[in-house]
Design a protein around this nucleic acid. Structure first.
Lengths: 224, 224
DNA sequence: CCAAAAGTGTTCGCAGTACACCCATGC
DNA sequence: GCATGGGTGTACTGCGAACACTTTTGG
């Protein structure tokens, strides 16, 4: 049997100051019953990205909002039976595109808080660590965090998202000054969303056009 | 026939203010006679990195000094015959570890100036572009450029290396001040190397220990 | 009126940048 | 002594960092 090619997806979701990952429960050996990253074998006539999207669709029904290749894992022995080389991707989804499902014994798919993970199958912990690392570092030089929010969001959500994922406090005034300085957020006429508590914030939307224009010229994002 | 897994290597060498890539001439169709990146199929029991090193050894005899995974290319149709997914790596070699071989019709391996490349087989131009991009950006936040110099080198070589690869002029005083500030270069007692012209420079060596210590603590390189 | 979150400006220090002259060597 | 590259210090400026009070809303 020759080398088999698979994909795995590390899909993050953010809500209520928690960063989640989508995991699926394995039905068959090896690692039967363990939680694992969604993924599977690449078909003959699909691209790698298509394979990831198809598997995600089949296994989780998740609608992905951002997807990029992460790394390819190919150590012999990472799958105890065959030689499987896996191209890992990492993806982001909006809160409105997933429901938080608590992990139960019956569940087949669930979102887990990245701070409270179960044991994972294969080398998936390693893959997840790399994805988390990539997410954190990329957050500071590209505004990919916006893919974790709904299309319209109050600015405070963005602040909290950064603080949650980077796991550090951020000066609200400096953060806003800097982020707004890029000019990639549009203030919406829509009045503030319903606020549970406190003063409601204005709503903003990501201006993709403006962002691409800036990226062409080469600009430095560099959020801390 | 199932999907085949291969590796390709983009190996850079630097000398005399020129950045070179190692290419091999293809002996068989498709693209017979074209220049291509060294690479080949992954064997059943070797890791991806071992595969790259083996192929490099077999096809070019090059002694590699730095190697990292670049990206995995898997579009159906990138190889006109079969479905081949290729994990690309990028590598760096020291000047003392390669001889510049001019490309001739007889040559099987040659170093090409990255500014003067022949047509390449498959999507290898695309791979090479990505590697160049990665090299340039990585140069500014990790001192990987040192892997392109001999273990002992005059500081001026480092300056010229950065200027060549980044294709821009650099203020010598600021560059030295900043680079030296990291404390990862040791001045050697060895007197200056033979200089062709002008005043000979002091020799320096990369202090890997010091560098790793710094990296642990998390420091920002950021050379421009 | 109290609690909770939104919104906003100024000061300080440092690091990046710009800039030019003298030194050592080979021929 | 001339050409070539090596080696060095200072002043400016702009950006990141630190920092606290007022406003709006719901209860």
């Amino acid at each position: 049997m020759s080398i088999q090619l698979a994909t795995d997806a590390v899909v993050f979701g953010y809500q209520h100051e928690q960063l989640f990952v989508a995991l699926v429960r394995r039905k068959y050996p090896p690692f039967e019953g363990h939680w694992a990253l969604p993924g599977g074998f690449v078909l003959e006539n699909e691209s790698l990205e298509q394979a990831v999207r198809r598997e995600l669709e089949e296994e989780t029904g998740i609608k992905i909002n951002y997807l990029e290749q992460l790394y390819t894992f190919g150590e012999p022995g990472r799958d105890p039976r065959h030689r499987v080389v896996s191209v890992a991707y990492f993806g982001l989804v909006r809160p409105s595109d997933f429901q938080i499902v608590a992990a139960t014994d019956a569940a087949e798919v669930a979102w887990f808080d990245t701070k409270d993970l179960p044991p994972l199958a294969f080398d998936h912990h390693h893959i997840l660590d790399m994805a988390l690392h990539r997410l954190r570092s990329k957050l500071t030089y590209e505004p990919i965090g916006l893919n974790l929010l709904d299309p319209q969001f109050p600015f405070g959500d963005l602040e909290r998202l950064y603080m949650t994922i980077l796991d550090q406090s951020i000066d609200r005034r400096n953060f806003r000054k800097k982020f707004m300085g890029f000019g990639i957020l549009n203030e919406l006429p829509a009045k503030a969303a319903t606020a549970d508590k406190g003063r409601p914030g204005k709503l903003y939307a990501f201006d993709v056009e403006q962002y691409n224009a800036l990226k062409e010229k080469g600009f430095l994002f560099d959020i801390k």
